[in-house]
Design a protein around this nucleic acid. Structure first.
Lengths: 220, 220
DNA sequence: GGTGGTCTGTGACTTAGTCACGTTCCCGTG
DNA sequence: CACGGGAACGTGACTAAGTCACAGACCACC
């Protein structure tokens, strides 16, 4: 297989040639259409996944049907859920779904373990991603436990806007991001509209006053 | 240093003799009195920590003064916060405090990295603990986001009771465990007392009807 | 026997979540 | 083109949880 994908991962690109060759020989490129379930509670993974492009959403679903996004895996990152399955035979109560079409590289378990054993750079990649996820999770706990929902909503709107002025997203999507309920998000959005900060329409939210929204997102 | 401590860690006890010797030569036993801050935001760790006895509480503090316990590290486990600092030079927004007197073993950074490189068993120990913590954190998110506070309170009471019938704990301690507010916990406890399930006194809670409390803790 | 610190109680209020609907919009099929 | 069904959104009434500003109550130690 071509080794061009390896450039997406600085830790791997810096490996000595024989390590790079080892990885590229055993890696297989996979394409996952949007909406694919990458992993789910109770399903053990059988290969290590490196994401090249697209995003995977990792979320929890409550018995009552509510959902919360724990973090997103994007290009240049690895999927620690599958990593953990490989390394610790642990099964997690979360599921991963592709939000967009995803291109990834799969490394079989045996090759993964050998890479871990042989290559400090590869280990570093894996550990760094573990740390990043723990950091993400702690941030989620902090937000859910301590921050006001309107502030968190403003943050999500800005994050999803990504410099554009119109966000194509449903109230339910935002509620899932925040671990809240659709009606609650709807009411908060309505209040923002009343203040003239956003304009609401079906499936889309226009940010009319990004500065005020930013102030809300950053406010104490 | 004596190598008897290594028996507390099955993964390490099973190592080949030279790996065991390597670790015990470089390890230093440390004793931390209750209430010691083991790590805090912005402070980088300089050695890897294995806990022999006692517990370290890892928690987040909100700007508004509220706190939430993320997880506890007990005997036979490693402290992944310090691990992450060593492996990924990442700083976390959490702090660790000893809840009891703690006996631990510290392995300096250089020896830690060598052990990671050389010993598959040592790697396995580290990865397993990472996985456990991620699992813990996801559980916290799930609880905080989706579960009712009275149910979570009942769970905490039972966990702290540990087969005894009297729990020595303040309302504030429980609130910190749950990431809630003292007054809220107090009101819920009062309601449990009204039902005759507990008896309240200053600094202690007597479980008068553990079965009902269990039912609440396990109920949908 | 006062005194300061910790622990707990209370009421009034705001914010968030739940439940059970009703309404509106869109898009394909007959 | 009507129309029927699903997805998205709106609403009111209610419960649960958090906040704020206090007021007591208890304990230990001079």
């Amino acid at each position: 297989m071509s080794d061009s994908w390896i450039e997406r991962f600085p830790e791997l690109a810096a490996l000595p040639p024989q390590d790079r060759a080892f990885l590229t020989e055993r890696a297989a490129k996979v394409a996952l259409p949007a909406g694919t379930t990458v992993f789910a509670p109770g399903v053990a993974a059988e290969s290590f996944l490196l994401i090249l492009a697209g995003t995977v959403r990792v979320q929890q679903v409550s018995p009552g049907g509510r959902e919360i996004v724990l973090y997103r895996v994007t290009g240049g990152e690895t999927c620690i859920m599958t990593t953990s399955c490989l390394l610790a035979d642990e099964n997690y109560a979360a599921d991963g779904v592709t939000e967009t079409d995803v291109e990834a590289v799969a490394i079989p378990k045996a090759a993964f373990e050998e890479a871990i054993a042989q290559s400090p750079g590869f280990r570093r990649l894996v550990f760094t991603d573990y740390s990043r996820r723990i950091s993400d999770l702690m941030h989620v706990v902090e937000e859910v436990a301590f921050e006001r929902l309107d502030k968190r909503l403003a943050q999500r709107l800005l994050a999803r806007a990504d410099n554009s002025t119109v966000v194509r997203v449903t109230h339910q999507d935002l509620a899932t991001d925040l671990g809240s309920a659709r009606e609650v998000v709807g009411r908060l959005l309505k209040e923002l509209e009343r203040r003239g900060w956003v304009a609401l329409s079906r499936g889309a939210i226009e940010l009319r006053n990004p500065d005020q929204i930013k102030a809300l997102a950053e406010g104490s």
